[in-house]
């Protein structure tokens, strides 16, 4: 709460003409935000651990709804995206590599570009834009209208009732959609390459990709996508719920949450790149 109060004071203070003061203030705000986010993430994990089975008949239907919202409901969009990604990137890469005689690098290239990077990151960005922003607005409005205090007054833990379903739903949603996107993009990519006259057979194509995939790719893909989903949910819920809001603040906070989500997802992705490099 202190971190939140400090953030508000810093944001409301007049803008300085000095660049160093401006930079210092931004840096301080960043550290306060990270402190608040970290605490919120830990509280959320603690609640999931301790209360997953509490009031299951009320809360578990919410978890299923959130999985549908962050996963199933986005499938048509991801089907289209997989086609587009296959056409724009995979198809062109396959046909170009085949044309210049570098077909043997295809598997490695696809695993690095699509499986490790593009699939998870693109999924995270789209879920953030589609569901994360809606999360901030829903929770921010509920907070501004006093519904969160009403929950507390009724003996209902808001983190358990409002946050836990969203965190689980988003983590599983990003994980599942990433898998679908990767499979769809790789398949449609080959189809487009085939239509462009690439001489590679489907068997060769998928064998190369399978050979390039190691157990680490599967493990890190699962960890990374679950972490992206968790991160997006925590950032959006933190911004919507963890601070007192007025209705007029909600749109501004939604923009801030999406920006923070993008920055944190890209930072986490960079961390995974380092992890891939050292393993």
């Amino acid at each position: 709460m202190l971190a939140l109060a400090n953030q508000q004071v810093l944001r409301d203070s007049p803008v300085s003409r000095s660049y160093s003061v401006y930079l210092g203030r931004k840096l301080l705000l960043f550290f306060l935000m990270m402190h608040g986010l970290g605490a919120f993430a830990l509280i959320t994990m603690g609640v999931i651990w301790r209360k997953f089975y509490v009031a299951a008949k009320v809360v578990h239907p919410h978890i299923r709804q959130e999985i549908a919202r962050s996963g199933t409901a986005l499938l048509p969009m991801f089907f289209f995206l997989a086609l587009a990604l296959g056409f724009v990137i995979v198809g062109q890469t396959v046909s170009t590599l085949a044309r210049v005689g570098a077909g043997e690098y295809l598997g490695t290239m696809m695993v690095i570009v699509v499986v490790r990077e593009l699939g998870p990151l693109l999924t995270a960005m789209l879920v953030l834009a589609r569901v994360g922003s809606a999360n901030v607005i829903e929770l921010g409005t509920a907070r501004a209208l006093g519904e969160v205090e009403a929950l507390e007054a009724l003996g209902i833990d808001p983190v358990h009732y409002l946050i836990m379903p969203r965190v689980i739903g988003m983590a599983l949603g990003v994980f599942s959609l990433s898998i679908y996107l990767i499979i769809g993009a790789l398949t449609s990519g080959y189809l487009f390459a085939f239509l462009q006259g690439a001489s590679m057979t489907p068997g060769d194509y998928f064998r190369q990709i399978a050979d390039a995939l190691g157990w680490l790719d599967f493990a890190l893909l699962a960890i990374k996508t679950l972490a992206f989903g968790f991160l997006i949910a925590v950032v959006t819920c933190y911004n919507g719920l963890a601070q007192p809001l007025r209705l007029e603040d909600v749109s501004r906070v939604a923009v801030r949450a999406v920006t923070q989500g993008i920055i944190l997802c890209v930072t986490l992705d960079a961390f995974f790149i380092i992890l891939y490099a050292i393993t």
Partner: peptide, 11 residues
């Protein structure tokens, strides 16, 4: 219904 459903874990 929400408070009592949550407290007693009821449908």
């Amino acid at each position: 219904a929400l408070p009592i459903r949550y407290r007693d874990n009821l449908e």
